[in-house]
Nucleic acid binder design. Sequence first.
RNA 1: GGAGAAGUAGCGAAGUGGUCGGAACGCGGCGCACUCGAAAUGCGUUUACGGGGUGACUCGUACGUGGGUUCGAAUCCCACCUUCUCCGCCA
Length: 423
Amino acid sequence: MLDIRRIREEYDTVKTAVESRGKGDYGLAEALALDEKRRGIIANAEQKKSRQNAVSKEIPQIKKTGGDSVAIMAEMKALSEQIKEDDAQLAEIEEKLKDALLGIPNTPDASVPVGADDSENVEQRRFGEPTAFDFEPKPHWELGTELDIFDFERAVKISGTRFTVSKGFGARLERSVTNFMLDLHTGEHGYKEILPPFMVNRASMTGTGQLPKFEEDMYHVTQQDFFLVPTAEVPLTNLFMDEILDAKDLPVYVTAYTPCFRKEAGSAGRDTRGLIRVHQFNKVELVKFSKPEESWEELESLTVAAEEVLKRIGLPYRVVALSTGDLGFSSAKTYDIEVWMPSYGRYVEISSCSNFTDYQARRAGIRFRREPGAKPEFVHTLNGSGLAVGRTVAAIIENFQQADGSVAVPEVLRPYVGTDVIR
RNA sequence: GGAGAAGUAGCGAAGUGGUCGGAACGCGGCGCACUCGAAAUGCGUUUACGGGGUGACUCGUACGUGGGUUCGAAUCCCACCUUCUCCGCCA
């Protein structure tokens, strides 16, 4: 969430930034009004409390010396009731203020292109050229079914639409890609591998910004109020919830493979075939905790680390900077990496790399101390897919398909897959 | 799932209705003294959040969490969370 003091002191700047997302002020004006009300109540209540504390210290003396405590007790009783009323009123205002703040998105960085939607995203760079074929290429769902490595019909039978079953080399390829990504990031990019829970509590989902606004997108285990993780970002970022880190340990780099669970509500009819948009998919996630002054540099290197996966596999891609209208709720700046997907005839999102600045850190209470005795400051959090595994598999199958319907295994993956060609 | 015990500063731990909350005591950390240096020893110091103030500073809040009783709660009552021990179940 945004710092209420920043909203108070730089209201116009914050308002302009938030409104650049193109969907109003998200209750910013309301938050400011609530804050003013809140401070008025605090000033009043604390004066009364100060008096109450002072008198409470005197009462034992009065009693000991046999003085008359009846009048003062009556006064204190009345004061105590007033304080209770003030506190109740304050709690109510603070609850409202907190709700208001949780509903306000992060302020886009000044470098983010202003635009209404994804059509105004700005391409940053490309790697490779869209794959050229001297035959008619097939989409991965057709190839995969013919090769008997995907089984969409049985997935529907055992679970429903938007679920997948991989078999044989299909399952092996998925596992290989996952391992390749984890090995690259842990071995060469300095990330520590984490295996987190796949279900998290409400506090974690609130810390990273999925709750309270986006509850309808999540799978909720109502029996125990758990949520299935929509991304490993949630458990990874909340590793340090309510902790104060040591500056000498920053930056912290962590990575994890998890399945990701999403309802995909509102995308009915979109990408209904294949591995592109499903309720459960695998992803390797990269998360960083950094000092504020280093986070922009860290965003660039995180994006480069994610790109490296595609470079080594040999898949054509491009990087785009999201415009303000397409930017995620908690993000101050996001680069999407898009891989070339022949069946779509365009680039498709395969990674989203964001700097959340102190927005998530403030919600989740993740701080650091520059030196012993210094005031704790909020860290900056960043994350990016490194990469979405299912979409990577789909891209490999489509871009590496051969005229005879077989799929060449990219060289870096051969030691993992154990074959040169899937046929 | 059942029974019992416990949650107080970085760690251990005292406090069972008021002068006990930055909080006894011990350990650790930091500073100073002693030392060529270190150890040992001695002295001092050591939380976070919010309000007000340019500031020195000041007021408030916090004893797992949330309620309640009381003029006053770490202390009494209720609910929940977590940890430990035993039993049950289980990969």
